[in-house]
Write a protein that binds this DNA or RNA. Structure first.
Length: 271
DNA sequence: CGGACAACCTGGCGGC
DNA sequence: TGCCGCCAGGTTGTCC
C-alpha cells in the first residue's frame, strides 16, 4: 500500500526527528525482516551510528549513516513512528523493531503482516541500484519514458508496477494514472500511440504529485507517522471505486484481475 | 523477456 | 454471535 507518495510523506514527517540523532540501542523481533543479518548483528552494527540524512528512493526509506545505510521497505502494512522511550503506542501491538535514539525518543517499526524489510548495507546502491528512474526527478523526461517504454513488451499496467522500469508506482497510482491518461490497463505497450505515451507520462507525474500533496492514500493500513490518515483516497477516480460512477463519463467503474492484481478502470473512457 | 503462480503474513470483512 | 474463507497488495523466486 505505501507507494511513492506515502513513503515520501513518511520520510518528510520523520526527517526532523531522526536526522542528527545517534542510535543508542536496537531491538529487532522478527529475524526474517532483517535477514541476512541476525538480530544481534543488526543491533551491534547499528548501535552508535549517526543519522546523517534521510531520503526516499522508490518505495525505500533510506537512512544515510556515518557508516553504511539502513533501508526500510514498508511493503503493505509497515508503519514508522517516533515516541518518547517508555511511552506506549497503539501500533505497538505489532511492534517488530525499536531504534532507541540519543534524545530519549524511539523510532518504532510496526508491521502486522511482517512483510516489511529492514536492510543494513554498506552502500544504499547495493539495493536501490536495481530500481528504475525516479518518476518525479528532472532526469525523468518524456523522452526517457518513451525510450524505456519502447524497449519493453507486454501489458502496460503490470509494466508500471515493475520497479525496475520506474520506481515507486504501486497498484493505486498505476490505476489512477491509467484512468487519467484514458488508457485501458490491458493495453499492450507496443500499441500505445505517441500521444498516449505523453498523456501517461503527464498523468503518472500528476497523480504522484497529488498523492504527495494529500500526504498519501489511507485505504486501510497506511498512516502517517503521527497516526493520522492521508487524504488522497478522497481524490480517487477509480481505485476502490468499483460500482461507482466514473467522474468523467458516469459509467460504472469495473474491477478486474490483471497480473494477479485488482485493477480498477472505466470501460468507456479508458481505451 | 513475459506471464502465471506460489510464498511471505495477518486483519478485516462478507457470507452463512 | 461466531466461524469460515477469502481478499488485500509489494516483492522475490520458480517455472514454462
Amino acid at each position: 500500500m505505501p507507494e511513492l507518495p506515502e513513503v515520501e510523506t513518511v520520510v518528510r514527517s520523520l526527517y526532523a526527528d531522526v536526522v542528527g540523532r545517534v542510535f543508542v540501542a536496537i531491538m529487532a523481533y522478527w529475524p526474517r525482516q532483517i535477514a541476512p543479518l541476525s538480530p544481534q548483528e543488526f543491533a551491534s552494527r547499528l548501535t552508535g551510528r549517526y543519522v546523517q540524512s534521510l531520503h526516499r528512493r522508490g518505495k525505500y526509506i533510506v537512512f544515510d549513516l556515518d557508516a553504511g545505510a539502513l533501508l526500510i521497505h514498508l511493503k503493505m502494512t509497515g508503519r514508522l513512528y517516533v515516541v518518547p522511550k517508555g511511552v506506549s503506542h497503539p501500533d505497538d501491538r505489532w511492534l517488530r523493531a525499536v531504534f532507541e535514539m540519543d534524545d530519549g525518543h524511539e523510532l518504532r517499526f510496526s508491521d502486522p503482516r511482517r512483510f516489511g524489510r529492514l536492510l543494513l548495507v554498506d552502500l544504499a546502491e547495493e539495493v536501490t541500484g536495481q530500481l528504475g528512474p525516479e518518476p518525479l526527478s528532472e532526469d525523468f523526461t518524456l523522452e526517457i519514458f518513451r525510450t524505456r517504454l519502447t524497449a519493453r513488451r507486454g501489458t502496460i499496467k503490470p509494466l508500471l508496477l515493475d520497479q525496475h522500469f520506474v520506481a515507486g508506482i504501486g497498484n493505486i497510482y498505476a490505476d489512477e494514472a491509467l484512468w487519467s491518461a484514458g488508457i485501458d490497463p490491458r493495453r499492450k505497450v507496443d500499441t500505445l500511440k505517441p500521444e498516449e505515451v505523453e498523456s501517461l507520462y503527464i498523468a503518472l507525474r500528476a497523480v504522484l504529485l497529488s498523492g504527495i500533496e494529500h500526504q498519501g492514500a489511507s485505504v486501510n493500513w497506511y498512516r502517517k507517522p503521527d497516526g493520522t490518515k492521508g487524504e488522497q483516497q478522497d481524490h480517487f477516480n477509480v481505485y476502490d471505486r468499483t460500482g461507482k460512477p466514473c467522474s468523467r463519463c458516469g459509467t460504472v467503474i469495473q474491477k478486474i484481475s490483471l497480473g494477479q492484481r485488482g485493477t480498477h478502470y472505466c470501460p468507456v473512457c479508458q481505451k
